[in-house]
Computed example of a mutant assay.
Amino acid sequence: MSVLVSVALRARDAVRGVWREVTKFGVVGALAFVVDNGGYNLLVFGLPGGSEGGVMRALPVQASVLATGIAALLSWAGNRYWTYRHRHREKLTQELVLFLLANVVGVAITAGTVYASRHLLGLDSVLSDNVARVFGWVLATLFRFFAYRRYVFVAP
């Protein structure tokens, strides 16, 4: 087998492996996204059709942090036991601390976009909050993927 064919086959296998990882990460992330955004909307805006708003209607940034924190715990379990089940660390505590540090940055990114929308741009509608959160979620997800892959779930 020529060197060129060998390199091409290795590259193909690496791309397939990354795509499987991205797909699993995406499924876990999609579930966490539903928990995060659903939780945020319930906390701030209440049940659909309700006129009173949610229990944290006056605290949207804190509600964002709480909802994202709950979603992060779901994400850790899904990524540890499914996406990166073959790469997790022997020391659970060390892995969890690194995971939480990566997610603190992710929470800050997501909450930061809500803060910018509310306090810098003066927007406070359901639409503007959700656009800000989706934008923050995309940025935070890109950060998390690379942080998990590089620092949190490392090959033994």
Results as ranks from 00 to 15, higher is better:
residue 65 V to W: 09
residue 129 D to P: 08
residue 40 Y to T: 02
residue 121 L to M: 13
residue 93 T to M: 13
residue 92 L to S: 11
residue 94 Q to R: 14
residue 74 L to V: 14
residue 100 L to I: 12
residue 77 A to E: 11
residue 80 R to I: 02
residue 52 E to K: 11
residue 121 L to C: 10
residue 55 V to D: 07
residue 105 V to Q: 01
residue 109 I to V: 13
residue 107 V to G: 05
residue 117 S to V: 08
residue 99 F to S: 03
residue 93 T to A: 15
residue 65 V to S: 03
residue 90 E to D: 15
residue 70 I to A: 15
residue 120 L to C: 13
residue 63 A to I: 00
residue 93 T to P: 01
residue 88 H to A: 06
residue 115 Y to T: 13
residue 109 I to Y: 00
residue 98 L to A: 13
residue 60 P to H: 06
residue 42 L to T: 01
residue 111 A to L: 09
residue 87 R to H: 15
residue 78 G to Y: 01
residue 117 S to F: 02
residue 84 Y to C: 05
residue 54 G to M: 02
residue 68 T to R: 14
residue 94 Q to I: 13
residue 81 Y to T: 04
residue 118 R to C: 05
residue 87 R to W: 09
residue 78 G to N: 05
residue 103 N to G: 09
residue 68 T to P: 07
residue 101 L to K: 04
residue 60 P to L: 00
residue 85 R to L: 06
residue 123 L to R: 10
residue 113 T to P: 00
residue 103 N to F: 09
residue 44 V to A: 10
residue 104 V to L: 14
residue 58 A to C: 07
residue 113 T to K: 01
residue 109 I to A: 00
residue 106 G to I: 01
residue 53 G to P: 08
residue 97 V to A: 13
residue 40 Y to G: 01
residue 76 W to V: 01
residue 54 G to V: 00
residue 59 L to V: 00
residue 40 Y to Q: 07
residue 53 G to K: 07
residue 110 T to E: 04
residue 114 V to S: 00
residue 92 L to G: 09
residue 72 A to N: 07
residue 91 K to W: 12
residue 61 V to Q: 05
residue 90 E to M: 11
residue 81 Y to Q: 07
residue 93 T to G: 15
residue 66 L to C: 11
residue 45 F to I: 00
residue 63 A to W: 04
residue 46 G to H: 06
residue 43 L to C: 08
residue 61 V to Y: 08
residue 80 R to E: 06
residue 76 W to Y: 15
residue 83 T to H: 05
residue 60 P to D: 07
residue 127 L to T: 13
residue 68 T to Q: 13
residue 126 V to D: 08
residue 46 G to S: 05
residue 105 V to K: 00
residue 51 S to A: 12
residue 44 V to H: 10
residue 114 V to N: 02
residue 85 R to Y: 09
residue 105 V to I: 13
residue 103 N to H: 13
residue 113 T to S: 06
residue 42 L to C: 03
residue 106 G to L: 04
residue 65 V to G: 07
residue 98 L to V: 01
residue 78 G to A: 05
residue 86 H to W: 09
residue 54 G to L: 03
residue 84 Y to L: 08
residue 86 H to G: 12
residue 96 L to F: 15
residue 44 V to Q: 09
residue 80 R to S: 10
residue 46 G to W: 05
residue 125 S to N: 06
residue 129 D to E: 10
residue 100 L to W: 09
residue 66 L to W: 10
residue 89 R to P: 12
